[in-house]
Amino acid sequence: MANQINTIIFDLGGVLIDWNPLYVFNDLIPDAERRKEFFDNICTMHWNEQQDAGTPIAQATEERIALFPAWENEIRAYYGRWVEMLGDANHGTVEILKSLIDSPDYRVYALTNWSAETFPIAKSMERFQFLHWFEGILVSGEEFLLKPQPEIYEAILERYDIDRHKAVFIDDNYKNVVGSEAVGLKAIHFTTPEKLAEELRQLTVNI
């Protein structure tokens, strides 16, 4: 087949790695309403994404404290206890990754929204040694780009000479799936390893 898939690109957080700030903040802010205020108005997901796009963590932290001094302890904990927000690997997805890595038929890469400062920490951890299996990883914080911006998909395609018509991208965030498809890169919306395996097989990917 002319457009047979030969390259698989994985997102990391939510697909291969469990990450959840509540692992820290359920205990740090036990009151549910106060915790909701913190995530809705103080350290929001949009704020977190700015560090994934390259804003230095120290700068972002101090700026947030200047705006919300009463929340200083909680704001500092966001990155000060960041490692505790990492859960386990998604072992079902890691098994799929391993089967693709072991096959001579596929090239395997990763494209992740992740701070350039915290990603090396995860990569050095024993339970995430599969991060060393990829032929290449494009980290948003190193590129000053962010999914679903079209430029970040173009960047990984160009850097690793990937034919978008023979590749598929996997992400748990639907807006990133839409962003991928907008540049002509086929995408799978990840929900479970079992569903991912099924959808890859439908694309005639052997796992």
Results as ranks from 00 to 15, higher is better:
L146D: 09
Q202T: 13
T55Y: 06
G184P: 07
Q50V: 10
F190Y: 14
E84D: 15
K147E: 02
S140F: 02
V15G: 03
L131A: 05
F119P: 03
K147R: 10
Q51I: 14
F169G: 00
E84Y: 12
L86M: 04
Q149C: 11
E199T: 09
I42S: 05
L200M: 10
E154T: 08
D31I: 02
I96Q: 03
G141E: 05
V83Y: 01
D31P: 04
S180A: 15
G136C: 07
N113A: 13
R127Q: 15
G13T: 10
Y174C: 00
I188M: 02
P21Y: 06
V168Q: 02
E151V: 14
L86F: 06
E142P: 07
W133Q: 15
L111R: 03
F119D: 00
N20F: 11
C43F: 09
F169C: 10
V108G: 00
M85V: 07
A53K: 14
C43W: 10
D52I: 03
E49I: 12
Q59K: 14
V177Q: 04
F190W: 04
A122W: 00
N26T: 13
F134I: 01
K98P: 02
H165P: 01
R64G: 01
L138G: 02
E181F: 05
E62Y: 04
N26Q: 13
W19I: 09
V168T: 05
A2C: 13
W114V: 00
I57Y: 08
T93R: 09
S124H: 10
P150S: 11
L16N: 08
G184Y: 06
E151Y: 13
E117Q: 12
E74L: 01
L203K: 06
N113D: 15
T112A: 03
M125E: 13
V24Y: 07
T118S: 11
A167Q: 04
R164N: 05
E194M: 11
G136D: 06
P104R: 08
Q50G: 01
D161V: 14
M1H: 15
S99H: 12
W114H: 15
F119Y: 12
E198G: 12
W82L: 07
F39G: 08
D163K: 10
T44I: 12
T112F: 00
R107G: 03
A89C: 12
T7Y: 12
T112K: 01
D172M: 11
F10M: 06
D40M: 08
K195S: 12
Y174I: 11
Y78N: 07
G92T: 02
N173V: 12
N41L: 10
A122K: 00
L97C: 11
Y23M: 04
Q59D: 14
R34P: 05
A89E: 13
L185I: 09
R127K: 15
N20D: 15
I42F: 08
E117M: 03
E74C: 03
I156A: 08
I96A: 04
I170L: 01
H165E: 12
I156F: 02
R164W: 00
L203V: 06
W71K: 05
D161N: 14
L86S: 00
K36V: 05
T93G: 04
